[in-house]
Write a protein that binds this DNA or RNA. Structure first.
Length: 418
RNA sequence: CGGGGCAUAGUGUAACGGUAACAUGCAUGAUUCGGGUUCAUGCGACUCUGGGUUCAAAUCCCAGUGCCCCGACCA
C-alpha cells in the first residue's frame, strides 16, 4: 500500500475529548474514527489489525473443533423471556427497538439464547455431542458509561463460542481445551507475557469463571497475581476460602491493574433447561445439554495491545497483528532514491511481505520518521542516499533504537524468519 | 445511575461585556531533504442548542444536549 494513496492521515494534535492512550494513538494514527461516545468506526489500518486478530482467534477456535457461524444482531424477545433475561430490570444494558408493527426486538449483547435455540434443531442424541460453535459478531451494550477509548464501548466486535456437552465431565474436558486455546491466542497476539489466567466470579451461572487479564496500568480490574504459579485472582472473589481452594498464599500475591481480554464460563444447564435443549442418552433417558461460553473481544484486544505495548512515540504492534509488516520510507527527492525505493517495494511485495510504502514527496524525513513511530509497524526500512551509498537498505525494528544497513537479500531473510 | 469538569475554524488553544486571535491543517509559490525544515500569500467559525439579562454576550444567568473523568454497574 502506497501511503500517498492511503486516505487516512496522521495528526499531530491529540484529540481533546479522549484521554486514554489507546484512543489517542489510534485516532492520531488514523486507525479508528469516533462516531460518538463508545462508538468507533474502523478505518483501513485499524481494520487490518482487527482482521489479523480475528484470524488468530479463528485458527485457535477451529483447532479445538469450533465451527464458525454468524447469528443475527436482532433478537426475538420470546427466547429471552424464557430465560428471564428480557426485562430491563434483569438486564439493564439492552438496546431495544420496534418493528413497524410495534413488535419489540432487541440488539444482541450476547448470544446464548439464539444459539441454544438453533441447536435444538440439531442436537437430539448423545451421538451429536460434544460440539462447539462460535461467531464473530457485533454486540450492542447500552453501557451507562462508555470509557477508555475502544476498551469499553456500546458497539463492539466479539468472538463468542458456546460448547455443548453431555455432562459436566465432558464439559470440563472441553473447558480445559478452550483454556489452552486462549493461552495460545494471547501468546500469538504478543501479550501472552502480560496475560494471566484469573479466577473470577461465575456471575449467576457458577461459582467461578476464568478471566484472562492483561496487565496494564490503565486496566479496569484489580487482580492479585502469583507470579511463580502464573495465575491470578480477581479482587472480586479474593477471600481466604478462595485462596485455600486454589492453594494460594496471600503473601505470594502482587496487586496489579489489568484489562479483561477474555472470559470463559461454565453455564451448566441454565439455558438448556430454560429453552429445552435436551438429548437422549444411550439408554433412552432424556438429559439437558451441559453448556459453556467463551468470549473474547477483538476490538478490546486491539486497544489492550496499544495500551500495553506503546511507548511515548506511538504504537508498537506485534508482528502477528500489525497492519503491515514493513513500513518502507523513501527519503528525499533524489530520483535515484525514488527508483530504488520503488524497487524495494516491488521486491517485498513479490515475496508476499505486506508493506506500507511512504512514497509521499514533499514530506520531510523527520515527519516520515515520526509517522513511522506513531503507526508502529514492526520493521522500518529506509531508502535514502545514505543507505544507497552503503549499497543496501536500512532496517530498524520499532522497538530498537538504531538501525543497520543490510542488503535486500538479508532483509528478506530477516523478515521471513520472524 | 450518583458526583465533577469541559464545549470557540478540520485539529489544538486564546480573547475585560464592545468588529473573534494564534498554532496546526489545507491551498499556492519558493526553500530544505536523516527526527514533525524555513519563509511568503491565501482558505477556513452563525463561538453546541434554546431562552434570559444588557444599548451591546464567545464572555453573565437559566435550561437542554454532547463529550471527558471519578464512582456504581459490567451475564
Amino acid at each position: 500500500m502506497r501511503q500517498s494513496k492511503l486516505f487516512t492521515k496522521t495528526k499531530k494534535e491529540v484529540p481533546t475529548d479522549e484521554v486514554s492512550k489507546n484512543a489517542e494513538l489510534l485516532i492520531r494514527g488514523g486507525f479508528i474514527h469516533k462516531e460518538m461516545a463508545g462508538v468507533y468506526s474502523y478505518l483501513p489500518l485499524g481494520l487490518r489489525v482487527l482482521k489479523n486478530i480475528e484470524k488468530i482467534i479463528r485458527e485457535e477456535m477451529n483447532a479445538i473443533g469450533g465451527q464458525e457461524i454468524t447469528m443475527t444482531a436482532l433478537q426475538n424477545p420470546e427466547l429471552w423471556k424464557k430465560t428471564d433475561r428480557w426485562e430491563d430490570e434483569k438486564v439493564d444494558i439492552w438496546f431495544k427497538t420496534k418493528l413497524k408493527n410495534d413488535t419489540e426486538v432487541g440488539l444482541g449483547f450476547t448470544h446464548e439464547e439464539p444459539l441454544t435455540n438453533i441447536m435444538k434443531s440439531y442436537i437430539n442424541s448423545y451421538r451429536d455431542l460434544p460440539c462447539s460453535v462460535y461467531q464473530f459478531q457485533t454486540k450492542f451494550r447500552n453501557e451507562a458509561r462508555a470509557k477508555s477509548g475502544i476498551m469499553r464501548t456500546r458497539e463492539f466486535s466479539m468472538k463468542d463460542l458456546y460448547s455443548f456437552s453431555k455432562d459436566e465431565v465432558e464439559h470440563n474436558e472441553f473447558y480445559e481445551k478452550a483454556k489452552g486455546a486462549y493461552k495460545n491466542i494471547f501468546q500469538r497476539l504478543g501479550i501472552g507475557h502480560l496475560t494471566y489466567l484469573t479466577f473470577a466470579s461465575g456471575g449467576s451461572f457458577s461459582k467461578f469463571s476464568h478471566e484472562f487479564q492483561t496487565v496494564t496500568s490503565t486496566g479496569e480490574d484489580t487482580i492479585y497475581v502469583d507470579e511463580n504459579k502464573n495465575i491470578a485472582v480477581n479482587k472480586e472473589v479474593l477471600d481466604d476460602e478462595t485462596l485455600g481452594k486454589l492453594d494460594l498464599k496471600r503473601e505470594d500475591l502482587v496487586e496489579k491493574r489489568a484489562v479483561e481480554v477474555g472470559n470463559i464460563f461454565t453455564l451448566g444447564t441454565r439455558f438448556s433447561d430454560a429453552l429445552d435443549l435436551n438429548y437422549q442418552t444411550e439408554n433412552g433417558d432424556k438429559k439437558p445439554v451441559f453448556m459453556g461460553s467463551y468470549g473474547m473481544g477483538p476490538t478490546r484486544v486491539m486497544g489492550t495491545i496499544v495500551e500495553a505495548l506503546a511507548d511515548d512515540k506511538g504504537i508498537i504492534w506485534p508482528e502477528s497483528v500489525a497492519p503491515f509488516q514493513v513500513h518502507l520510507l523513501s527519503l528525499g527527492e533524489s530520483e535515484d532514491v525514488k527508483k530504488e525505493a520503488d524497487k524495494v517495494y516491488d521486491t517485498l511485495r513479490k515475496n508476499n511481505i505486506e508493506v506500507l510504502f511512504d512514497d509521499r514527496s514533499e514530506v520531510s524525513p523527520g515527519e516520515k520518521f515520526a509517522d513511522a513511530d506513531l503507526l508502529g509497524m514492526p520493521f522500518r526500512i529506509v531508502v535514502s542516499t545514505r543507505s544507497m551509498k552503503e549499497n543496501g537498505v536500512e532496517v530498524k525494528k520499532r522497538n530498537e533504537e538504531k538501525g543497520k544497513v543490510i542488503s535486500l537479500e538479508e532483509l528478506l531473510n530477516l523478515i521471513k524468519n520472524v
